[in-house]
Simulated assay, not measured.
Amino acid sequence: MAVQSNPDQLVGILRDTVVALVRRDGPDLSARQLGVFLTVYLTDGPHTVRGLAAELNVSKPAITRALDRLGELDLARRKVDPMDRRSVIVQRTLKGTAFLRDMRQIMSEAETHLRDMPATTEPAANAETGRETRRAG
């Protein structure tokens, strides 16, 4: 039986994941680059610049800049579509697949850490003050 996560836990997992990605040796992606990367790796393709721009509701130049960075890091590559030479297809790479695997592991560890935390020490954001409060168990 799967344990349901509440929004605070999900944000905690996201925070721990981003912090772990920033601290480790390897690519440090912006939110846009990470959004493009995850869309390419977690949704069925083929993916094009135009399609990614539409799906993420951002401009084509923004997608192009994100893909430039992903290409520099060998996390994705662009290839001319052999069926329509005017279109460019975004392809996954071995390095990108490894990055996604590492990210899944980091997220899994963050989830385990939060799940194993005693309820009395789980931080919760106080909406009025912005300070963390401790929940009573």
Rank of each mutant, 00 (worst) to 15 (best):
A2W: 00
Q4I: 04
S5I: 04
S5Q: 11
N6S: 14
N6W: 04
D8Y: 08
Q9C: 04
Q9A: 13
Q9L: 03
V11D: 09
G12T: 01
G12V: 02
I13E: 05
L14N: 05
V19A: 01
A20Q: 01
L21I: 00
V22P: 00
R24T: 05
D25S: 12
D25G: 12
G26D: 07
L29R: 10
A31H: 07
A31V: 13
Q33E: 15
L34D: 00
V36K: 07
V36C: 10
V36H: 03
T39S: 00
T39V: 00
Y41P: 12
L42F: 02
L42P: 02
T43V: 10
D44L: 13
G45L: 10
G51L: 14
A53C: 05
A53R: 06
A54N: 13
L56G: 11
V58Y: 08
K60D: 15
P61M: 05
P61D: 06
T64M: 07
T64G: 10
R65T: 02
R65Y: 04
L67S: 04
L67C: 10
G71D: 12
E72S: 14
E72F: 03
E72C: 06
L73K: 10
D74N: 15
L75E: 06
A76I: 05
R77H: 08
R77C: 06
R77Y: 09
R78G: 15
K79H: 09
K79F: 06
V80Q: 12
V80H: 04
D81P: 01
P82S: 14
P82G: 11
M83I: 08
D84V: 11
R85V: 04
R86H: 06
R86E: 08
V90N: 04
Q91W: 09
R92I: 08
R92P: 03
L94S: 13
K95A: 08
F99R: 06
F99T: 03
D102E: 15
M103S: 04
R104G: 07
M107V: 01
M107W: 01
S108R: 12
E109A: 02
E109Q: 04
E111K: 12
H113L: 08
R115D: 05
D116G: 02
M117S: 07
M117E: 11
P118D: 15
T120K: 00
T120L: 01
E122N: 09
E122Y: 13
N126F: 02
A127R: 09
E128L: 13
R131M: 13
E132K: 07
R134N: 11
R134H: 11
R135V: 06
A136M: 11
G137N: 12
